[in-house]
Amino acid sequence: METYSKVYNIEKHDISNAGTIASLTKRELKRRGLTREFVKKVTIGLYEAEINVVIHSYGGNVSLDITDEYIEIIFKDTGPGIDSIDEAMTAGFSTASSLAIENGFGAGMGLPNIKAVSDEMLLTSSKEGTRLYLKFYIKSENYES
């Protein structure tokens, strides 16, 4: 199938639209005949990462490339960065604002959930911004038979 490439902007604090990117991508993954289990993994990763950009950053974007063999996703934001990636990766550790908590987020499970579902995850951060690289490999058994 053709490669599907998209870039979406993500606005700071735009919580009511969060999940749109995951929904649109879920539809494309289903169209490509991928299994429910595989679609769920990718959807969880996308949703959690999108929420992170919305609630923690000054805004950013995500680029997506879906081929027959893999999915590559890169989230970038413009700051303020993560103080300690080790702490951020710890389940339950959270620096979420009251805005995030009132909206049901901020459990400190976002990055651990992303790590659990993705095949490759690379998180780098400075005050100028955070970059999250995710890769999901698509195997033949990930397609509906």
Partner: peptide, 8 residues
């Protein structure tokens, strides 16, 4: 009541 737990 925490959506990341629901997601996970």
């Amino acid at each position: 009541d925490l959506l990341s737990h629901v997601m996970g």
